[in-house]
């Protein structure tokens, strides 16, 4: 008889155990538990690494293809004067489009977020926004810059400078402060446009953003690494 009681008692505790387990599992299914979050995090890290590798591979492929293309152009225009002229023309247009590495005199600007971190001032004024970079590029273009790059992102005809949270996207790539803006063109006119009284950098300095402008004689600006393609615009005949 005593034995039977033991079985019943253990059975009752098992009922409690089963009910509690089921309720617990049903509750945890809907929640983001710490374990589930850690799993999600490591999965995200894995996929990030994968994509990074893929993008690196793609960049390598692109470089190889560009080299191949140059070789093909060289061989196809190896004979004949007219084709040599065409080759020169092609090179010139590629340079204007920003598809070649270029060197020349110009200015180098370093623009850094404000070192102040006061809560009394509007934080928005202390950091550099995409609109600031757009205005600077605009100013440089207006002063006759022939090639511009920001943190080695070449500004070309299709370049967009957009805001993406706490970073800025240029050509779809992330850049952050400090920004190094290189511009090739007439040193005097570029320097004058940037440092003139009431110019855009005046406004930046008033917001305590650090702007440093230097005249440099031998600036190297690397080419645009993306692809310039047009799908909808057709040539007029």
């Amino acid at each position: 008889m005593k034995n039977k009681n033991a079985y019943i008692a253990i059975g009752i505790v098992c009922v409690v155990l089963g009910a509690a387990l089921t309720v617990q599992i049903r509750t945890m299914q809907g929640e983001n538990s710490a374990v589930a979050q850690a799993f999600a995090n490591s999965e995200l890290k894995d996929s990030l690494l994968e994509w990074k590798e893929k993008s690196e591979n793609a960049e390598k492929d692109l470089e190889e293809s560009i080299k191949k293309l140059e070789k093909l152009r060289d061989t196809s225009t190896a004979n004949g004067n007219s084709s040599e002229e065409k080759q020169e023309e092609l090179k010139k247009y590629n340079q204007i489009l920003g598809l070649t590495d270029v060197t020349g005199e110009g200015i180098v600007m370093t623009v850094t977020d404000s070192a102040q971190s006061s809560t009394a001032i509007d934080m928005n004024n202390l950091i550099i926004h995409d609109s600031d970079l757009r205005s600077l590029v605009n100013e440089l273009s207006n002063a006759g810059a022939e090639a511009i790059s920001i943190n080695d992102e070449r500004i070309v005809s299709t370049t967009a400078i957009t805001c993406a949270g706490n970073v800025i996207l240029i050509n779809g790539n992330k850049v952050g402060s400090p920004f190094t803006i290189k511009a090739i063109g007439s040193q005097a006119s570029l320097y004058g446009a940037i440092t003139r009284a009431g110019g855009y950098t005046y406004g930046l300095k008033a917001r305590s953003i650090q702007v440093e402008t230097k005249k440099v004689n031998n600036i190297q600006i690397s080419r645009y690494t993306g692809a310039l393609t047009q799908k909808y615009a057709k040539e007029d005949k």
């Binding site: 253990i10 009922v15 155990l17």
Partner: peptide, 8 residues
């Protein structure tokens, strides 16, 4: 006991 518990 366990089956009863799961049902509950």
């Amino acid at each position: 006991g366990c089956i009863l518990g799961v049902v509950i």
